[in-house]
Amino acid sequence: EMISLGTAQSRAGNEFRLLKVMDSKGNELHLITNRFDLSADEIAELYKSRWAIELFFKWLKQHLTIKKFYAQSEQGVHNQVYIAMIVYCLHVLSQLNTNSSRTYLQISRLLKAAPWKSAHLWLRKIAGKAVP
């Protein structure tokens, strides 16, 4: 279906294509595109792929606590992501190795609270064991 966007005074100069597709849960999605060279299925797959990328970045922000990228170069951004992933994995390993019932967030906060204390004291505290 072809549509125009905007009001009569500020209408977009181009025509767009309205697609109605079903998501994996059976919900109808309305997608607007200016791509006339692709089928509805191809547009739906592109949207699905883009949504997966958005979810990945949401996970990065939530779990790796990357709020912004500090580097200007591609290698610098890669390094920041690698470092954040290493920190995340170390926190998860701390949780697993101590059989802690604390969440990742609680462990992360404990480790950030006093980085000058010796690691074995914190790991024992995380595990819920008494510290000698």
Rank of each mutant, 00 (worst) to 15 (best):
L121P: 04
A113I: 09
D41S: 09
F69D: 02
N27M: 13
A44R: 10
N34S: 14
A114S: 09
D23L: 08
I83F: 14
P115R: 02
K67C: 14
S24K: 13
V92S: 03
F69Y: 00
L29Y: 07
P132I: 06
K48S: 11
F36V: 11
W51Q: 01
T33M: 02
H91L: 14
R109E: 04
H30I: 15
Y70A: 15
S94F: 08
A130C: 06
K25H: 15
L121Y: 11
T103S: 03
C89F: 07
H30C: 14
P115F: 01
I66T: 12
S101L: 03
L121V: 07
L60K: 06
A119V: 14
V92D: 05
N27D: 15
Q75N: 10
S73Q: 11
I126F: 02
K112P: 10
R50P: 07
R124S: 10
M85V: 11
L121W: 10
R124H: 04
M22E: 15
K61S: 11
G128K: 06
G76Q: 04
L105H: 15
G128A: 01
I83C: 12
L29N: 11
H63N: 01
W51L: 04
D41T: 09
F56S: 11
L60W: 03
S100H: 05
L38H: 04
S49H: 08
L111Q: 06
H120N: 12
Q106V: 07
Y104S: 07
V131L: 09
H63G: 02
L96E: 02
T103I: 03
V87Q: 05
W59H: 02
K67W: 13
S118T: 12
A52D: 03
W122L: 15
H78E: 15
M85K: 00
K125S: 06
Y47F: 10
Q72V: 15
A127I: 01
E28C: 11
V92K: 05
N27P: 00
M22I: 15
E45T: 05
Q72S: 14
M22Y: 13
S118C: 12
K129Y: 01
G76N: 00
I83K: 14
Q106K: 07
M85I: 12
I66R: 02
R35D: 09
P132L: 01
V77G: 01
K61Q: 09
M85L: 15
